[in-house]
Amino acid sequence: MKVNLRVWRQHDAVDKGRMVEYVVEDASEDMSFLELLDVLNEKLILSGEEPVAFDHDCREGICGTCSMVVDGHPHGPEKATTVCQLHMRKFNDGATITVEPFRAGAFPVIKDLVVDRGAFDKIIQAGGYISANTGSAPEAHSTPVPKANADRSFAAANCIGCGACVAACPNGSASLFLGAKLTHLGEMPQGQPERWERVVNMVETHDDAGFGGCTNTGACATACPKEIPLDVISQLNHDYLKATVGGRRKKA
């Protein structure tokens, strides 16, 4: 099949950037979207041009590295699918496809489709963990976890940290990402001692990193390739209020 690509090219962080058009004549239905870019890049290299830089690693939808906006959708139009798992059979022969980087104030572009998502690591550093030094753990079965909590925790822990929620949000908020981590840890008995401290510190770091506020548009959950449910944001708000206004957070 043949596809026309309009791809964002930007040499580095200071370059203004522009859309550039390419045609790939020999695409195949069985290719993944990233394999289409591979084919394009092989051609570009041989014709002496620089290939399109894009982030990727596992190519099976789990590492969260791949990140691009395809036809206006972070990770492309297919529901619950990362762009590395998006296949060309979902497009029509002759289609024109637009490819851009994830755009958000907190994710500056590094080159072409590659952005800096380091702010996510900072949010986790602020409290996205349970403090349990190696060797200090009690026997695993000493704390049973009701299956319902374990399952809800798992559903939230599923987040791959890709940033599509931020790219989809008109405010560039990372509330879905934040809520996912708070729900993962907050559903576990092990997560209780640090629960209130955690939410306040993570939210502060989120705001300082330049992410916007949440206005409940729900665009994040629609874009999320792991279908993180929107109710993790309610959990986030609930915990935050309890910690601050409710006075649960005890300053050390």
Binding site: Y129, A132, S136, P144, V145, S153, A157, H184, M188, Q190
Partner: peptide
């Protein structure tokens, strides 16, 4: 160690 860190392993109904 992993349970103490909050790793959400699969559990049975008894927890």
């Amino acid at each position: 160690q992993c349970v103490a860190q909050g790793v959400p392993f699969a559990r049975e109904y008894g927890g």
